[in-house]
Design a protein around this nucleic acid. Structure first.
Lengths: 151, 151
DNA sequence: TATTGTTATACTCTATAACTATA
DNA sequence: TATAGTTATAGAGTATAACAATA
């Protein structure tokens, strides 16, 4: 989003025009965009975008092949190459050969990746606090529960 | 999303990996993507995307300049040109000169645009019925209410 | 001087097709 | 034959900068 638009639409951003309120797709799209923008603004200076954050979260469970990571992130295998390249060049993950399948890599978190993940998680918490500031704790959990059920 | 991925991830799509469930950004992003994909798949054959649908909804209230439409849709004025071009060439809107400001156009729905809007709204209702099938009516309204409050 | 609409342009994101090396 | 990873490439989508006409 341009600064120009950011500035001009500062209010529009927080006020969805009434007719759009009835189209849940619009609500979801704005909410999603707001969270992503806020996260990436707060991470500025770092090259870590929300997709990278998602990858780090999934890798915390243990190493995964690019294909498996892509499946869980809903990212095409050809796009996974660049995603992992970026995480590797920032030092947050490394590619290790899969011991039982020489076609595949196992992507794993480095120590630095664990630090990055920790910081990103703090940022993500700040984002939620900002964006959900109008909701009570009960309502935040309600929202998460409802969203989890429709995916 | 590729057919290949669609096929392979048919389940993954509906099951967000547990660690991602805690990051609301991921939930919102998937839900938003699901609604948009479903809408655009059902509209296939037509060139109407969700942004166009949003524009038609807003124009139902009456004619608007491109800038005003862009503000409400959260679309840059340079991107509005193509968006309105597309709606105009499909015959759903027309550009009329603004009577009080000769720099501006007033974009207005054509009769065909009203028909298109009606059909798109039916599709959107189908999408909501599909995606919210796991939620009761009360829960659907709850979700919409919560989303509306955080935007 | 500022704003509306426009073009040219560039950058990101993501998808397709074709390749390699393995299985 | 099929799969993991890769490359090259092309198509959306969207941003920036600069311009003409008008305010």
């Amino acid at each position: 989003m341009t600064d120009e638009l950011e500035e001009k639409c500062g209010d529009a951003r927080r006020s969805v025009p009434e007719p759009l309120l009835r189209w849940t797709g619009a609500l979801l799209s704005r909410a999603s965009q707001r969270v992503r923008d806020s996260f990436e603004n707060r991470m500025s200076g770092s090259s870590l975008k929300s997709k990278h954050y998602g990858a780090l979260i999934l890798l915390e469970d243990g190493p995964k092949t690019q294909i498996e990571l892509g499946r869980q992130l809903w990212v095409d295998r050809t796009s996974m190459v660049a995603l992992v390249d970026e995480l590797e060049s920032s030092g947050d993950v490394k590619r290790e050969r899969h011991p039982e399948d020489r076609r595949a890599y196992l992507i794993q978190l480095t120590e630095q990746g664990q630090t990055t993940l920790k910081r990103a998680r703090e940022i993500a918490d700040e984002v939620e606090n900002e964006i959900f500031s109008t909701l009570s704790d009960t309502e935040r959990n309600q929202l998460r529960g409802l969203l989890a059920r429709l995916i």
